Computed example of a mutant assay.
Amino acid sequence: MQELARRIDALRPTLLRLAQLQLRNPAWAEDAVSETVLAVLQGAQRFNGASQLKTWIVGILKHKVLDQLRQHMREPVAAGANDAGEEEDLDALLYRSDGHFRDMPEHWADPCSELQRDQFFAVLEACLEHLPNRQGRVFLMREWLEIDSRVICQELGIAPTNLWVQLHRARLRLRECLQSNWFGAPPR
C-alpha cells in the first residue's frame, strides 16, 4: 500500500494539470484529483494490472472531472476584471499587426485518441501474454516482426500447415480476448 501511495503521489502533479486543463478552476481540479486518489486507494484491490497503473488512474480521473463538470454546470461564471486585458495581451503574443499568426501553429495530436490508443495497446499486450507460448511466438514473429513464413517454419521446425493453424488459433484467441476486454467492454 505504501508503494501505491508513493506512485500516486508522484502522479499527482500530472493529474492536477490534466484536471485543470479540463475544468479551468483550481479548486474544482483539486477536488477531482482528491476524489480520484480516494477512489484509487479504495479500489486498489480491483486493479488487475491489465493496463498500466497511470492509465487506470487517469481513467478514474476522467470520470471525476466529468462529475465536477456536471456538478458545476449550472453555476454562473462571472468574468474577471482582467479578462479583456488578458485577451489583448494574448492577441499581441500570437498575432502580428496584420492579423496573421506570428508563428504558424503546429499540428497537435488528439490527446483523447492518444490515450485511447495507449489503452488499446495495453489490452492487446495483455491478450498476447495470455496466448499459449507457441501461438504467441508464432504470431509475434509473423505479424509484428514480419518474418517470412518459410523462415519461421525453418526456425521452429514446423510444417507450413502447422504454422497457419497456429496463426489461425492465435488470431481467434486474440479476437475473443479483445472482444471481451476492449470492443465489448463498457466504455472507458
Rank of each mutant, 00 (worst) to 15 (best):
L94P: 06
N48Y: 03
I152C: 09
M73Q: 15
Q52F: 13
H130G: 10
L124E: 09
D148I: 04
S113F: 12
T14L: 14
R17L: 03
A79G: 00
A92G: 09
F47G: 00
W144E: 15
G80P: 02
E3A: 13
S34G: 11
E176M: 07
P187C: 00
A122M: 08
I158G: 02
Q52G: 10
A19E: 00
Q154C: 06
I8F: 03
M104F: 06
P26L: 09
I158N: 03
R17Y: 06
L16W: 11
D103I: 07
Q22I: 01
L167C: 03
G184S: 02
N181E: 08
N48W: 00
Q20M: 13
A81L: 05
E3F: 10
Q166F: 07
I8D: 01
I152W: 06
E146T: 14
T36I: 01
G43P: 03
R171K: 13
P26S: 11
A19I: 00
P186M: 10
V40Y: 01
S113N: 12
G157L: 01
H168F: 04
R150N: 15
W144S: 15
G80N: 05
A19L: 00
P26F: 08
L178K: 11
R173N: 07
A122D: 12
Q68Y: 00
V138R: 10
V33A: 05
E176A: 15
R142Y: 10
R70E: 11
Q52K: 13
V40C: 05
A185T: 13
E87K: 13
L53W: 06
E88A: 12
A32T: 10
A170M: 04
H130S: 14
V77Y: 03
R134H: 06
S34M: 15
S149Y: 04
F101H: 06
V37R: 02
V151A: 13
R117G: 05
S113A: 15
A92V: 06
L140F: 09
E75G: 09
L140C: 13
L16G: 00
R12F: 07
D89E: 11
K62F: 02
L66P: 01
R24K: 11
Q154E: 15
R96Y: 05
K64Q: 08
R102P: 01
V65W: 01
A39F: 01
K64I: 08
D148M: 09
